[in-house]
Nucleic acid binder design. Structure first.
Length: 466
RNA sequence: GGCGACGUGGCCGAGUGGUUAGGCACAGCUCUGCAAAAGCUGCUACACCGGUUCGAUUCCGGUCGUCGCCUCCA
C-alpha cells in the first residue's frame, strides 16, 4: 500500500489509481528559455523515480511531461539574442532533454509542446467563455476567478486575501485583478496563432489543462511539479479544468522541494543558478542523481561542493560493493522489503538508501569472512536500478587523450579507452609481480590523476572511474 | 501582513511516545609491499520555554530562527 502526501488537502493518503494497475502521471516541465539548472534536474529525477518505482511494482504508467515553448520570457530572450523563438526553444529543449538523460531520467511517454496544441487550448478557452467563466477583453481572454467556487483550495488561499497582492499590468482591462490570462493578444512581431479573439498566443496555465486532458483524460491520477508552481500555476490549472468539466481534475498533487544555493532558492530570473550541464560535467550524472535522492523529494536541499563530494563517496561505496562479486540467486528478500516499505511511505528515497547501505555493509562483512553475498549484491543492483542510479558504466568518455598519454609513458599499446585501461592495469600487475613497487605505484598514481581508481584485492585489481 | 514547510550529532540527512537510521568526515585496530577498499571499535543529536504523559527528540501551546509561496520560476 502506497502512501503519498497530497498537496491538495495537505494530507498523507493511500494512493489508489483510478483504474487498477494503471497510472496516469503529468509532470510540469520547463519553460525552455534558457539552460537547465540543478532545480530542474531535481524535479525530473524526483518524479522519474516515482515513475520507475510504480512501473517496477507492476503498474502501467503513462508519463507525460510538457515543454513550454511559447511565453513572454522566450520571446524576450530570443529578441535579445537575435534568433527566432522557435530556434531558441528547440535548442533549449534539446539541452534539457540531454541533461535529463545524463541524470538517468527515462524519456517520458509523451513530451507535448505547447505550440503543437493551440487548437486544443482554444477549444478549452472557448468552452470557458461559453460557460461565463471567462471573458474576452481587448484581444485577451481572462479567467473569471470569482465565478468559480473553491478557487484557492490547492494553495490554501482565499480570494479576499489575494486581492491585495494581485498583479495588475497597466493598460490591461481585467474585471478583477485576480483574473488571469487564458489568451494573450499578439503585439506586432510576436509569434501568434489565429483564434476567435484575434491573433494571439495562449497564457501559461492553459497548456497544462489542455495537454493533460488530451493525453491522460480527466480526471487523472498524479499531477506533479516544483513546489513553486503550487500558486498560481497549479491553482489556475485546477480552476480552468474543473471549471470546464465541472468535475475533479487531478487526484494527487505531488510537489518537489526547491534546491537552494547559499540558503536561497535557485532561480532563472535572478541568475542565481547552478548550471545542470556543468554540474554533470564536473561530477557525473550518477553522483548528482544520488545527491538528489539522499533527501526526501519534498524537502528543500542545499547545493554545495561538499555535498557533491559526499555523494561521490557514497556512490563509490556502492560501486565498490557490487564489483566485489557477481549477483547470484534471487535478491535478498529482507533488503527488498525494507526498500519497498521506504518507497511506499511517500517515496522516501533517503530512507531507502539507508537500507541499501546497510545491505552493503552486511554484504561486505560476509565477503570479508569468505562467505557468499550474491543475493545481497543482487538486491543492491535491483534497488539501485529502480532508483535509476547507474553503478555499471565505466564512463570513460573524455579520457581517450590522457589515457593515450599514459599508454605511451608506460609503453603499452594504444587503442580504445577501455583497452588502454586494461593494459595499464595489467602493466601494473606485472610490475607488482616483479616487486617493482615504484613503477606499480607510479601507474596507480597517474591513473588516479586521470580519474581511474585502482584497488587491489585478493582476486586481482579492480578499477573504476571516479 | 497572509498561507505553508522546517529547525536532528563536525557536515549532509531519515525516523520514532520508551530499543542502532544511513552517508560523508575524524581516531584506533585488523587486513595490505604501500595505498585504497572492506570489517570491527570509538566519537555523537534531536533550537528554546512551558504543558500532556509513568516516560517526549517524536504529541499540544508559546518563543526565537530559517526557507518557500503570495509576481515569471522545477
Amino acid at each position: 500500500m502506497i502512501t503519498v502526501y497530497n498537496t491538495l488537502g495537505r494530507v498523507r493518503q493511500t494512493f489508489e489509481p483510478l483504474e487498477e494497475g494503471r497510472v496516469g502521471m503529468y509532470v510540469c516541465g520547463p519553460t525552455v528559455q534558457s539552460a537547465p539548472h540543478i532545480g530542474h534536474g531535481r524535479c525530473a529525477v524526483a518524479f522519474d523515480v516515482i515513475r520507475r518505482y510504480l512501473t517496477w511494482r507492476g503498474w502501467d504508467v503513462l508519463y507525460v511531461q510538457n515543454i513550454t515553448d511559447v511565453d513572454d520570457k522566450i520571446i524576450n530572450r530570443a529578441a535579445e539574442l537575435g534568433v527566432t523563438t522557435e530556434d531558441l526553444a528547440a535548442e533549449m529543449t534539446e539541452r534539457f532533454l540531454t541533461s535529463y538523460r545524463r541524470l538517468g531520467v527515462l524519456d517520458p511517454d509523451v513530451t507535448p509542446a505547447a505550440t503543437h496544441h493551440i487548437p486544443e487550448m482554444i477549444e478549452l478557452i472557448a468552452g470557458l467563455v461559453r460557460q461565463g467563466l471567462a471573458y474576452a477583453s481587448g484581444g485577451d481572454v481572462y479567467f473569471r476567478v470569482r465565478a468559480l467556487e473553491g478557487y484557492g483550495k490547492l494553495s490554501g488561499r482565499n480570494v479576499d486575501e489575494l486581492r491585495i497582492g494581485a498583479r495588475v499590468e497597466p493598460g490591461i482591462d481585467k474585471e478583477d485583478p485576480l483574473d488571469f490570462a487564458l489568451w494573450k493578444g499578439a503585439k506586432p512581431g510576436e509569434p501568434s496563432w489565429p483564434s476567435p479573439w484575434g491573433e494571439g498566443r495562449p497564457g501559461w496555465h492553459i497548456e497544462c489543462s489542455a495537454m493533460s486532458a488530451k493525453y491522460l483524460g480527466v480526471p487523472f491520477d498524479i499531477h506533479a511539479g516544483g513546489a513553486d508552481l503550487i500558486f498560481p500555476h497549479h491553482e489556475n490549472e485546477i480552476a480552468q479544468s474543473e471549471g470546464a468539466t465541472g468535475g475533479p481534475f487531478a487526484r494527487y498533487w505531488l510537489h518537489n522541494g526547491m534546491v537552494n544555493l547559499g540558503g536561497e532558492k535557485l532561480s532563472k530570473s535572478t541568475g542565481h543558478i547552478v548550471d545542470l550541464a556543468e554540474a554533470i560535467e564536473t561530477y557525473g550524472g550518477p553522483v548528482i542523481r544520488l545527491f538528489l535522492l539522499r533527501a526526501a523529494y519534498r524537502s528543500p536541499i542545499e547545493y554545495s561542493e561538499a555535498s557533491m563530494r559526499d555523494a561521490r563517496g557514497s556512490l563509490d561505496r556502492l560501486r565498490s560493493f557490487v564489483r566485489r562479486a557477481p549477483s547470484a540467486g534471487p535478491p535478498d528478500a529482507a533488503a527488498l522489503d525494507r526498500f519497498v516499505a521506504s518507497m511506499e511511505d511517500d517515496f522516501n528515497t533517503a530512507e531507502a538508501l539507508g537500507a541499501v547501505f546497510e545491505t552493503v555493509r552486511q554484504g561486505n562483512a560476509r565477503l570479508d569472512r569468505g562467505g557468499e553475498a550474491g543475493p545481497l549484491i543482487a538486491a543492491v543492483r535491483e534497488i539501485t536500478g529502480v532508483l535509476g542510479i547507474d553503478l555499471e558504466s565505466a564512463g570513460l568518455e573524455g579520457l581517450a587523450e590522457p589515457l593515450a598519454e599514459l599508454a605511451a609513458r608506460y609503453e603499452v599499446a594504444a587503442g580504445s579507452a577501455e583497452g588502454m585501461v586494461r593494459r595499464l592495469v595489467a602493466a601494473r600487475t606485472a610490475a607488482r609481480r616483479s616487486r617493482d613497487w615504484s613503477r606499480a605505484d607510479a601507474i596507480r598514481d597517474d591513473m588516479a590523476g586521470a580519474g581511474i581508481v585502482i584497488e587491489d584485492s585478493a582476486d586481482g585489481a579492480r578499477w573504476y572511474r571516479r
